[in-house]
């Protein structure tokens, strides 16, 4: 097999007549942080569960570090950390005992476990809770422990299935921060994360794989996704209501493709050149439009919705 840390070949999973994963082919590049996107029922979780040996594939292959997990899961999962959905822990164990359990299972010795436990608990900001039983923890705390146990023994692959699902905004931010640090600090680490939250994917990932109906629709760098929709729409908020004069004045700027009223705001299409945003800001200020906010419409969301529409 190739050097790609994750390689999925003609993977298929059927539940009776329903095909959850439909001959999926996907390659995850080394040291990338790939966001697995797709609507509910697209086959993201099923794919990740096959990769982590929670369910069996109907046919096809799924290689982790060159070893087919459908044939030899024990060897394939050797260098992999996972957080699938919101896992639960044995409520009568403490974080330290949980890490020791997982550490012993993957063959770490006592010294390694205890050293890594300390550094990981610091990373996920759970040091002061290390000796409390997990049964008393909030969902956010449990998810940080879940992420922590996935980091034991410094795996080269981390698989995350909606790691911030069900968390409050603070919990989400904390998990994101840990993931961001992980991405920035680790040299040899490939992360795959499924998520529904597009800003989260934009914030963390450098690549996106888009799946629907169990098939890969697009797999590229995140910038390619953002520019797929072509034009960038900028939303200008002004004091009071936008007048027709304002809109025609903006429309007359040579680089503006179109300007129109959007509720109480003005939607301005400036094409795909990102550098034009600062020029527009300057021109609007000179025209004394009393603009107090300029935001860009989410192009990833647009691409996402277009892809879903096309694949129907």
């Amino acid at each position: 097999m190739s050097e790609n840390p994750i390689e999925i070949v003609n993977l298929r999973k059927e539940y009776g007549r329903f095909t959850a994963v439909n001959d999926l082919n996907l390659t995850i590049k080394k040291n990338s942080f790939t966001g697995l996107l797709g609507p509910n029922g697209a086959g993201k979780s099923t794919t990740l569960k096959i990769l982590t040996h929670l369910i069996n594939a109907t046919s096809g292959e799924a290689y982790l570090n060159g070893i087919d997990v459908t044939k030899d899961p024990k060897r394939a999962l050797q260098d992999v950390g996972t957080v699938i959905e919101t896992p639960e822990f044995y409520p009568y164990l403490t974080p330290r005992e949980t890490f020791r359990y997982v550490g012993e299972l993957i063959g770490m010795n006592r010294e390694q476990i205890s050293a890594e436990t300390q550094s990981i608990l610091e990373k996920v900001k759970m040091t002061e809770w290390q000796d409390k039983r997990l049964g008393t923890f909030s969902k956010g705390m449990r998810q940080r422990i879940a992420l922590g146990q996935a980091l034991l023994d410094d795996p080269r692959i981390i698989i995350l299935d909606e790691p911030t699902s069900g968390l409050d905004p603070r919990g989400m931010a904390e998990i994101r921060e840990v993931l961001k640090n992980l991405r920035n600090d680790s040299k040899d680490l490939t992360i795959v994360m499924s998520s529904h939250i597009l800003p989260e994917v934009q914030d963390l990932c450098d690549r996106i794989a888009f799946i629907n109906h169990g098939t890969l629709l697009m797999d590229d760098d995140i910038s390619a996704f953002e520019s797929t929709s072509g034009a960038r729409n900028v939303i200008a908020k002004v004091d009071g209501l936008p007048t027709d004069d304002m809109i025609s004045a903006i429309d007359s700027l040579d680089y503006v493709i179109s300007a129109e009223r959007l509720g109480n705001d003005i939607s301005i299409n400036i094409g795909s050149d990102a550098s034009l945003r600062s020029r527009l800001y300057k021109d609007l200020a000179e025209m004394d439009m009393k603009v107090y906010s300029l935001t860009e419409e989410d192009s990833l969301e647009e691409t996402y919705l277009n892809l879903i529409k096309e694949s129907r």
């Binding site: 982590t52 999962l77 992999v80 996972t82 997982v102 299972l105 993957i106």
Partner: peptide, 8 residues
């Protein structure tokens, strides 16, 4: 979700 996803 923790135990079964390990190399065991």
């Amino acid at each position: 979700l923790i135990l079964f996803t390990r190399p065991i």
